[in-house]
Design a protein around this nucleic acid. Sequence first.
DNA 1: TCAGATGTCTAGCGGTGCTAGGATTCCGTT
DNA 2: AACGGAATCCTAGCACCGCTAGACATCTGA
Lengths: 190, 190
Amino acid sequence: MAIKERRARERAERERLIVRAARELAETEGWDAVTTRRLAERIEYSQPVLYSHFSGKDAIVAAVAVEGCAELATLLRAAAADVADPREAFAAVARAYLAFAAANPALYDAIFTLPSTLPFGTPEAPAPLHAAFAAIAEPATRSARVTGHDPGGYTELAWSALHGMVTLARTGRLRPDLDRPRIDAFNAVF
Amino acid sequence: MAIKERRARERAERERLIVRAARELAETEGWDAVTTRRLAERIEYSQPVLYSHFSGKDAIVAAVAVEGCAELATLLRAAAADVADPREAFAAVARAYLAFAAANPALYDAIFTLPSTLPFGTPEAPAPLHAAFAAIAEPATRSARVTGHDPGGYTELAWSALHGMVTLARTGRLRPDLDRPRIDAFNAVF
DNA sequence: TCAGATGTCTAGCGGTGCTAGGATTCCGTT
DNA sequence: AACGGAATCCTAGCACCGCTAGACATCTGA
């Protein structure tokens, strides 16, 4: 029965290969360049193989997104780890969030902007999704308590502001020379 | 030479027809449903006719976006018109902004989220774009003066928050039951 | 050794944005 | 009134997309 195990191992390995290839291709040439044909060529298999691992292209993007969520969660947690003051901790998380988005634009898109079928608010969402949201929500909630705001609304508002900055800046709708003042305003306001 | 004028008039009329058809189709079935074939069928011409008016599909979307910008600008100006207090005026603008996005999701996408080739920050941007931004920026700046923040950063941050709320809510990433607290937090913070 | 399960590929479907080239209609001139 | 040329429009097709049916090879276990 060891043969079956080896097979399963090889399958899992190939699945990781697909996700990695999709991510790399997206990061270097953008998601538009991630087609099933190019992906298949990249992993040196034919197209249909992709569909034996994932239900479709969306599922591949979703897999990349989940992977990215896990990384984002650890990054945000690390940013907040050694900061005692709640507002300073949240500011550090915000900085880390923006840095992540700037460093991994395609990954960020996979998680937050591409029309995904990922169930976000629901309990059956993959664990990394919850982890990433918690890594934002917990520092935000602590900051809300200090500033005396409703934690839920405050958290989602702050997250919206971060997400809005990322997406508007990416499409050239925000002035780059206002990057600093914008973040200063964020820290002043939240 | 009146013939040439009539021709030009008919051409302009057909161009408006294309933009209107694209907008209606997008609003009823989403931008994915707006294909050049369906658009051509809708205006009762063949596909290539579209390309005699616009350089490509992107240009059609951009035309819809410009049209939407003009409407958004007038809406926002109307919202701020009769409110004396700067912070209350800005809150009214924010409400109008969110209402516009909720009422015209496809139009909002055309303006703010679809990968557009519209030159946003630059001076050569179409007038409606400047008008729409000004309709946000002016009340925001007045509010910033009252609250003692840097106008530029404050304006772009507030806009980012609004835009983030719209896009995250649309993709099911924000909890609908927190809609009110979120807006309350916005009003408390900005 | 051999039937059957498993895995993979080739070929193709209906769709996309976009365009070349021919047909048709209309215009200004003789 | 008739004609040559310009303007207009459509048919047909390109290369690409996501996705899948069915043939082919390979490997497994009796």
